[in-house]
Nucleic acid binder design. Structure first.
Lengths: 110, 110
DNA sequence: ACAAATTATATCATATTTGATATATGCGCT
DNA sequence: AGCGCATATATCAAATATGATATAATTTGT
């Protein structure tokens, strides 16, 4: 995990600090985070291609600020909301499955 | 959606009654339910092959009753918990993605 | 540069999800 | 039948996620 990525995680409220701190996360915990972040990234991409945050929010009876947090990878956003938002962009279960399958990549140290 | 399935959904607290009631769910809402139920089913399968509910619960700092609800497709269980449990059975993001991709099938009427 | 639209951040009361606990039910085995 | 173990169901206080609101910052178009 490079510096930029770690800082992005910290800025979004994830309990990730030094590399030592990071190692306190089990592989399962970090995979869960990777899945959420992967969904965030693709959500933003898909949403931008079709509508504003406010429009998406209305579709799922949420609010624009919540969509901003979802796309920003904020730790207060559940997979639940991310999936609801993905579906509202017209994503199929296949689309969502593919995003999750592609998450949780390789973490390298030296 | 056949009768047995509807009754199973109702028994687990889903707001699904008559076919008319069902139709009040948007396609997105029912897809979300299908995704959760697909995860439940595979979770039970994977868990049974490797450990007891109590053992899985301990791995994710949860409780045996909560795992029972997760496997039973209870509506009080979030995708979050389902995914955490899947990961604790050793499932990879690929495994999880595949389950989700396969969810939300065809609903037929006549 | 300006205005309008869009997105981000902060706060908060409410709703939902959570793990814990107690207890019931089932299930294989002797 | 009775025992041990696994799973299911019920209840609940605490934690977390939620949508709403206000407002700040940013982007976009002119």
């Amino acid at each position: 995990m490079d510096k930029a990525k770690r800082e992005r995680l910290e800025a979004n409220g994830w309990k990730v600090g030094t590399v030592a701190d990071f190692l306190e996360l089990t592989p399962e915990e970090s995979t869960l985070i990777e899945i959420k972040l992967a969904l965030s990234r693709i959500l933003r991409q898909r949403r931008q291609e079709r509508m504003t945050q406010a429009e998406l929010a209305e579709k799922i009876h949420s609010s624009q600020p919540r969509i901003a947090k979802a796309e920003g990878g904020d730790s207060s956003v559940s997979i639940e909301l991310l999936v609801r938002a993905m579906l509202a962009t017209g994503a199929t279960p296949q689309d969502i499955g593919q995003v999750i399958a592609g998450a949780g990549g390789i973490i390298s140290f030296q």
